[in-house]
Nucleic acid binder design. Structure first.
Lengths: 363, 363
DNA sequence: AGACGCTACTAATGCGATTTAGTAGGTGTC
DNA sequence: GACACCTACTAAATCGCATTAGTAGCGTCT
């Protein structure tokens, strides 16, 4: 009657605790804790013995117990706010995540990953994770021009790294609490200038940038850079400009159609992601417009697709996994008490392929 | 001197505990626990009052404390074992994950997601998660024909759902411990039969299946189905066959090149994913082989890319997010003490687009 | 009126670690 | 030899919640 669940299902192996180690090593639990956490208070001999026993038993700290007493959850969070519709073909996130985890796994830190529909849900999730003490910090992606997240996170005291750009250009007004927000970003402005230079040097004068979501910070930076670079080169703002989309293949194709139907169609188009670039190239192909003879195409972000496209697309290549590594390292540094920093990742470089060339003679 | 960290960094808001609620509601902590967990032992009035106070304080259970006392971590795990190289363009996983999380978030369950290099690391990770009590169960993807994971998980007593196919056809030998493994799968065999029927009806007699990794269970099922369906239809096994790849665009393209160079090139190719299909179509385009006039192309798994390709690719469409929902629901049922089950997801359906048509007359 | 049972609670214990406050035992000092 | 002092440990408290074992109060039955 008092029998412990000696039911049909055989009980799986019990997980060893420090108590088990203590008993087998003939010491107290505290000694075990000291030994396994590299704290002083145990002799080298005892420490070695305890370590050996722990290994024998295959002991691993119970993460819940550790989190409860030690303040640290040993877990970081990453939320991706994307309407399911645009959860399309993008290697970006898996690459980023794999880079992040390379760094985290070395530190035995787990990553909580969640896809949500919108920004509000994302914020609610941060609150919940904070209240539940589920994560020690978060990686914030897709920073926006007017972003509520840094303030929220500062308020909660949740350490964070903004991946992809300075979410807040400068702390404005009264800091609510000391923000623990680092930033890892790439110089989109300079990259855009390089692309424009490349096209301009080839002879293009009518260049359109099919941008992504307008309220993302990096989109704003790219648009701004296009404008200033064009001005610097004395290009006509009517002919060198940006149009915004939602990053989907559908809007990329639609924008391309509109552009090609215009009285003075562009001779080069820069797409803010690979999917739109492919979609755009397909539109051109469908209309019998040869690439690059009559239209040059550049994709921001490379992918296998750009390589297998016909013709292969000139692309801005960046090492996304490395970006993830950088971000993870920065967040860990923050958790270790380091100061918030702003770190610049590698500048994307232009990989010329067969989708760019000089514009048709008439232009 | 005894001042609590009244340091430079202002202390972030303290998270309320049940003790705070108990004090404010004038009851004991146990009463609060009962009230908030829908257990008997408190009157309706008191329960309501406690709930109100908890809401006011914005209380959320500390996940570590709950895990420590309540046995449940409130967290599930998903490991993706992929060499970084093939972490390419695939909407499959993000879609799957977003479906999974739709179900989980309703139950306040988090998802630990990790990308690793290989199967061994994946197994090690399961062990660690188990030892650390980090997860209550896991979702196993990419089941293989000879898969070590079911046995390991059964051994650990870690509930799991195999996503994408019966990892073990039937429990063979002595079951180590009662396995808690459910399966969610799609009938790849029937889907393959449909594809083959479609192509056969169009008149194709030389059909090649460019398959993915040969040791994945669903690849095996597709290959087997191709063979038996071909036999049933009286097709020549020399002319209707499968070749395997690693799913990458590079191998997809390479396989296509080899096939097209053969003495009797196929008139139709079925690719096991969208990336290879696009790469294959690009190879055909590069050789001036018109699709579908001289070569029909079918992609297994749809994506925006198939739609924007030129011509748009005929694809086997499946609702991946829904597959994720199904898997998550099954795992939760298992955690609630339900029996392991095998659930069949929706059959993928063929979406004919412009990449398939009758073979050239000569054939 | 006492035994009984039920409701609505409180007190105490445990989960598995970390951490603080002790406490033996040895060493050095004058 | 009394004292301080360090080393190497142990005992006990703690984290926040769940849970089990009480317990007080009240109505009911015989």
């Amino acid at each position: 009657m008092t029998a412990p669940g000696e039911a049909a299902r055989r009980k799986p192996a019990r997980r060893p605790t420090i108590k088990d180690i203590a008993r087998r090593a003939g010491v107290s639990e505290s000694a075990v804790s000291f030994a396994l956490n590299d704290r002083p208070g145990v002799s080298a001999d005892t420490r070695a013995r305890i370590r050996r026993v722990a290994d024998e038993l295959g002991w691993q700290a119970n993460s819940a117990a550790r989190a409860l007493s030690g303040e640290r959850a040993g877990c970081l969070g990453l939320v991706l706010a994307r309407p399911a519709r645009t959860l399309g073909v993008e290697s970006f996130f898996l690459q980023l995540v794999s880079g992040i985890q390379e760094v985290l796994s070395a530190r035995r830190t787990a990553l909580l990953f969640q896809v949500v529909e919108d920004l509000d849900t994302e914020c609610a999730l941060y609150r919940r994770w904070w209240a539940e003490r589920r994560v020690d910090g978060v990686l914030v992606v897709d920073p926006r021009t007017d972003d509520p997240r840094p303030a929220l996170l500062a308020d909660l005291g949740l350490p964070a790294v903004a991946v992809g750009g300075p979410a807040t250009p400068e702390p404005t007004g009264v800091p609510p609490t000391a923000p623990l927000l680092s930033t890892v970003w790439a110089d989109d402005a300079k990259a855009m200038a390089r692309v424009l230079d490349h096209l301009h040097d080839l002879g293009h004068r009518r260049i359109v940038h099919v941008a992504g979501l307008p309220d993302l910070a990096h989109t704003a930076r790219r648009i701004h850079s296009l404008r200033t670079t064009a001005a610097r080169r004395g290009l006509d703002a009517q002919r060198v400009r940006s149009v915004t989309t939602d990053y989907s293949d559908a809007e990329g194709a639609e924008a391309t159609r509109r552009l090609l139907d215009a009285a003075e169609p562009p001779t080069a188009i820069i797409y803010d992601n690979d999917v739109m670039a492919i979609a755009g190239a397909a539109v051109a192909a469908a209309r019998g417009i040869p690439v690059p003879a009559r239209l040059s195409v550049v994709a921001w972000d490379d992918s296998p697709l750009c390589r297998v496209a016909h013709p292969p697309l000139t692309a801005l290549v960046r090492d996304t996994a490395n970006f993830g590594r950088l971000a993870a390292a920065e967040l860990l540094a923050l958790l270790d008490g380091g100061p918030p920093r702003t770190v610049e990742g590698e500048l994307p470089h232009l990989e010329p392929r067969q989708s760019t060339g000089p514009p048709p003679r008439a232009d």
